[in-house]
């Protein structure tokens, strides 16, 4: 009896330690958000004042003076939304073909998709830039919506899920005279809703967070995404730390909300493809 009590006490102690360690681990984020609410006078004092009366929103107001922030937010939102829809649709279609059909070249296409997983934009950015230039997509939002939309991770996640859909369901639809497209649209898609949701959420955060594609493709201020304009502020010589941190806080809020609401999808989904796209 005594041992059991001791054991559960030890577990409880462990619990507390794990949460404390986790909070310490998150210091960079927490500290940045905390500092974003400090007036420029308080920003550099250490130890800091945790007095809530000294918190201020002046930094957040200053963010909007750095440029056309609502426009950047709109751009980020458009890009992330359209690109995710495209990703979901394309990966669902490809996932279906790879999960449920037997066809010549299937193995080959799987290999191709894995190779995309492994040869990332970082390595390909120069030729990709020239391709976009030829298409006239440089400095155009379309250049950061379409090219990153085909992801190997999304395709694999969809495929893995659809493999689990029983063939009887497809068979039944086929006997009713449904075409392949109808089977996909009316049967497969509704049944794959959880996977579609997961791909959509992951893809939204990837595109929202994206810095590399916009960095290469976008060069005029009106087409900036939030990430790009924040990155531009970091680069300036006279850094207004308060403004910068307030901006970073605003930029991370949507992703944090999406993540905390759907963390199950992240914690499970990200293993399916193994690499961030």
């Amino acid at each position: 009896m005594k041992g059991e009590k001791l054991n559960s006490f030890r577990k409880f102690a462990y619990d507390i330690v794990s949460v404390v360690v986790c909070i310490f681990f998150l210091t960079p984020v927490l500290w940045s958000v905390f500092s974003a609410f400090q007036s420029s006078g308080n920003l550099f004092t250490f130890p800091p004042s945790f007095d809530p009366r000294s918190f201020t929103l002046e930094n957040f107001r200053a963010v909007f003076a750095t440029g056309n922030v609502p426009q950047y937010a709109l751009n980020s939102f458009i890009v992330a939304t359209l690109s995710s829809l495209l990703t979901v649709m394309a990966s669902a279609m490809a996932g279906f073909a790879l999960a449920k059909y037997k066809f010549l070249g299937r193995q080959f296409i799987l290999m191709l998709i894995i190779s995309v997983l492994l040869v990332p934009l970082q390595v390909l950015m120069v030729p990709v830039f020239l391709v976009l230039k030829t298409l006239g997509w440089v400095n155009n939002l379309i250049g950061i919506i379409i090219p990153p939309a085909a992801t190997a991770t999304g395709t694999f996640m969809m495929r893995q899920y659809m493999v689990g859909i029983p063939d009887d369901v497809l068979e039944a639809a086929r006997i009713d005279g449904a075409t392949d497209w109808k089977i996909f649209w009316r049967v497969i898609l509704p049944l794959s809703a959880p996977a579609l949701g997961a791909v959509c959420i992951l893809s939204f955060t990837w595109r929202w967070n994206d810095y590399l594609w916009p960095l290469i493709v976008i060069n005029s201020q009106q087409n900036f995404t939030l990430q790009l304009s924040l990155a531009n502020l970091i680069g300036t010589n006279t850094v207004e730390w308060g403004t910068l941190l307030a901006y970073a806080t605003l930029v991370m809020i949507p992703v944090l909300i999406v993540f905390l609401c759907f963390q199950r999808y992240f914690l499970k989904g990200s293993l399916a493809g193994s690499v961030k796209a």
Binding site: L86, M89, A90, S91, M93, A94, F96, A97, L98, Y101, I109, L112, I113, V116, I146, P147, A149, A150, T155, D180, F184
Partner: peptide, 9 residues
């Protein structure tokens, strides 16, 4: 079904 993904890739 593979056209969009393979095309973009």
């Amino acid at each position: 079904f593979l056209v969009p993904t393979v095309g973009m890739m």
